[in-house]
Design a protein around this nucleic acid. Structure first.
Lengths: 226, 226
DNA sequence: TTGACACTTCATTTTGCACTTAACTGTCAA
DNA sequence: TTGACAGTTAAGTGCAAAATGAAGTGTCAA
């Protein structure tokens, strides 16, 4: 019994496995690759960790073609992880369990050539809050702070404005019913975030995944928590 | 936030710290040395671990003379540990929280020169269940299995019976209101368990602590879980 | 049939951190 | 004052387990 509780806690204790469990707290099923991206590690490594979690009956797997979807095997697992989360001092770390509506495609995806979904909307709101963009009826306008912000990211806004294409347009999001950033600036910003490895494209899908580096950067630069 | 949950889980994940937290689940305060014995490790090491747990506000310390008493700093800690315990398959691992009645002195102590308290009673019951001893009105009788059992522990029962002192008497336990083993056999058995490091005396007190080795041996030989 | 992709397996390397050895502070009681 | 004991601190070591590299299996789609 002592042995068993020790094994259980050391299973949960590994940082990669913690990230896996914390990610799965939203109730969705994730593929091994998605979890590898979330945990910022290699496919081999995530495979090893996922195996241990399945062995211990914390997770279950469902094979679908060449993908494997992982989710909690029972709700007690979520309770335990949440109970640990409650121990962290400061603001409550709320994670909504079993929010099945919140599918990955709604959460973070591309819309033509720019970022959409909940993450796209959050980032756009962040840009406005940080006074990097200013909203008008039909457009976003770049402020002085905006020049600096995009300059730091090596995005040449001056050149973008020369294009015949619209520079920065609001685009209504079908899942969020709010606006996200489109236009040549939106496209350039998505490109930059992908090349800086803040985001990665899931294969054969419009789904985009925010890396841990991306989460950090988005928080540092825009005070956006994704 | 990701970082914090990771730190929290790795704190809980270490086997020594897990044992500490699991031990404290009974709601009692333990000294550093007692916890070192429970976790089967050195005083320096337990000191390091306890410090980390205090730093993270999982435990609080109260100094009393040269002793330091450790307990949970808030009940959420106990909930989290219990939630993890619930993940272990098989029978429920019940630990009663805040059972203040169950003080160490009631649990495992010496009575003159033999073992008393809940542990003393459990061991005595184990000896009878395993048909090592047979209870009569006023005595315990040694069976053939008993000869083997104490022989394996290098206790010379033949010599003990030669003493003028009673060989194996029941002694009523004030906390348990049940009998435990007294007499020359009870004294010899306590001596043996101490020298085999199944038990250790707490300094300056009648309290005795069961080592993890002792827990293993008592289960293997007597099917007694302490 | 072929190539791209998701995931696995195994052998090897790396590393974080628990643990040890040793020397210390502070408290108690004779 | 002294010696025994509870607990701490600091420097150095060792090892279990995570990460990596290389080579695989099985699936999909062109």
């Amino acid at each position: 019994m002592e042995k068993e509780i020790g094994y259980m806690t050391s299973l949960i204790g590994d940082p990669v496995r913690t990230t896996i469990l914390w990610t799965l707290l939203d109730g969705r099923a994730y593929t091994a690759t998605e979890l590898a991206i979330c945990a910022d590690t290699s496919p081999q490594n995530i495979s090893m960790h996922l195996n241990k979690l399945v062995q211990a009956d914390l997770l279950t797997v469902a094979s679908q073609g060449r993908h494997k979807y992982y989710r909690f095997s029972r709700e007690e697992v979520a309770y335990a992880i949440e109970a640990i989360g409650n121990l962290i001092p400061g603001e409550k770390h709320k994670k909504i369990i079993n929010n099945k509506d919140n599918s990955a495609i709604k959460y973070c995806r591309t819309c033509y050539d720019h970022l959409a979904g909940k993450v796209g909307v959050l980032i756009t709101e962040g840009l406005v809050k940080q006074k990097i963009l200013e909203r008008t009826d039909s457009d976003y306008l770049l402020t002085k702070r905006g020049d600096i912000f995009f300059g730091e990211l090596k995005i040449d806004t001056y050149k973008l404005k020369m294009h015949r294409r619209a520079f920065a347009k609001p685009c209504l999001d079908w899942s969020e019913r709010k606006h996200h950033l489109a236009g040549s600036l939106g496209a350039a910003f998505l490109d930059t975030m992908l090349s800086l490895d803040w985001l990665r494209r899931a294969k054969q899908s419009r789904v985009v995944i925010v890396t841990s580096k991306g989460q950090q950067q988005l928080y540092d630069r825009l005070r956006v928590t994704v």
